[in-house]
Amino acid sequence: MNKTVLQIIRFVVLVLLQVLVINHIRLGGYVHPYIYLIFIMLLPFSTPKWQFLVLGFALGLSVDLFTGTPGLHAGATTLMAFSRPSIIKLISGNQKFENITEPNISQLGGLWFFRYALFLVLIHHFALFFLESFSFRLIGQVLLRILLSVPVSIFLIMMIMYIFKSEKKRE
């Protein structure tokens, strides 16, 4: 399948999955998992750096349109997209990605992807929940939200990655 078409489908499916399904999961008042970040995580290594930012912004803004919070997810996702190259450098050191087009579990391993996802989700959730409260007044509540939401997000993201892992090999 054409790579661009695949990316567009991924974008739309993840946004709809987030706003129509995941956003309606209620696990107490503090757990708000976000899985649409997978889109940024899976962008090919060869993507020009500026495209990360534009795509991150567009992705966040699409989610914002549905949740009625203009700028909230856009800001958090742009920050996450900005830090993606540094995070990859941080967790893989000088490792070269020959023959690997995009971050995935089958070629880089579950542990690598887990660490990768953990850093990015932490950055995104910190930015998101602080922007959401728009102040440091409710800092205890915000930290509790981050502490409880990050594991659930990671769990869902890893689950989705493992579900689609086998299909990757067949391609």
């Binding site: 930012l53 700028g71 742009t78």
Partner: peptide, 26 residues
């Protein structure tokens, strides 16, 4: 260009957000 674009997009986000918060409405 990477940093400049990043700052630009973040400023847009925060302006959008601040605007929606100020008017208490989306």
């Amino acid at each position: 260009h990477f940093i400049i674009l990043f700052i630009l997009l973040e400023v847009i986000s925060i302006l959008l957000l601040a605007n929606s918060q100020r008017f208490h409405r989306n």
